[in-house]
Write a protein that binds this DNA or RNA. Structure first.
Lengths: 169, 169
DNA sequence: TATTGTTATACTCTATAACTATA
DNA sequence: TATAGTTATAGAGTATAACAATA
């Protein structure tokens, strides 16, 4: 799982945001993944299940895009879920290279049980500390933060860093 | 690195917070870990380095507690950092079971370079979207969220869930 | 007996590259 | 040639249990 360190960024007027962000996420992550694991799934497996639940099926390419799992890795994750009898793979008529991945009845059953159970499990943690109005305000700020990491800052400092460590993959 | 799925919790008045939290964190994480990896370190390795930097040394037990890495795993992470010549292990006088882990000169040098470089790299992302006043407000809310995951909600729903999936480790 | 750290085991995830079978 | 998915490879992290040395 995830796990980045809490850095001593406390004095920087901007980086002071990092520590609480990481701690809030890790708190969520620990609580949530413990619950998911108690249902016999790993994080990536739950992600795939959540993506397929209620759907007619997705190709590996679509699944990979949705879950951010690369194709070689995805094969393994799907193998394990198939081994548990939670999903099945079928050829796609029209393109015999592609494969349709779909939950089995057992998989749908688990999804229908696990997903609401997970929601029920998580809700009280937030509900005990926030009003719905607080939630909306914080939500807005978090989206702003998310967006800030998605757009490249164009300061001179940044450009210098990119030149030094450039590696865009 | 980390990787939990963005769930479709958008309709629940409280769980609406999950998606932006995960997305903000993943944004930070992707940007940050790309930079860390460009310096030749993995996430856990950077965590250990950040924990040891500027310190006289810690025992494995202390390091494990600080980084949340279990002892068996920690041995492997330390082995790899030792293999890179970044840290050394020494016996502790007084308790010959324990081991002091300390950065080498090379490790300190990397720490002194990598840590500020990482701060410089990360700052512009936040600075472009937030004032220092915004930062303080958001920081407060994020700590509140963190705390909410750290205290067990005591609703009837929760107790029922715990009975079903109990597994405290 | 309890604690510290290592070793052994086994699994999952990760990315990359090479491969196949289609298109 | 390009695409979809699998296989092969190698490495890192994860947890657990068993172990040796020491307290």
């Amino acid at each position: 799982m995830a796990r980045t360190k809490i850095l001593d960024f406390q004095r920087d007027p901007y980086l002071r945001l990092i520590r609480p962000l990481v701690q809030a996420y890790l708190g969520f992550y620990r609580v949530g993944s413990r619950h998911i694991e108690s249902m016999g799934l790993t994080g990536p497996q739950f992600d795939v299940l959540a993506e397929l639940g209620g759907m007619e099926g997705l190709t590996c390419a679509e699944l990979g895009e949705a879950t951010l799992i690369t194709k070689g890795t995805l094969t393994g994750v799907l193998d394990r879920l198939e081994g548990k009898g939670l999903l099945k793979r079928q050829g796609v008529k029209g393109d015999r290279r592609a494969i349709h991945v779909q939950l089995t009845a057992k998989g749908e059953e688990l999804f229908c049980k696990a997903f609401p159970a997970h929601a029920e499990f998580m809700r009280p943690f937030i509900q005990q500390a926030f009003t719905t109005k607080d939630v909306e305000a914080l939500r807005t700020q978090l989206f702003r933060l998310r967006d800030s990491f998605q757009s490249e800052p164009s300061s001179p400092t940044k450009k210098k860093e990119r030149a030094l460590h450039g590696k865009t993959r």
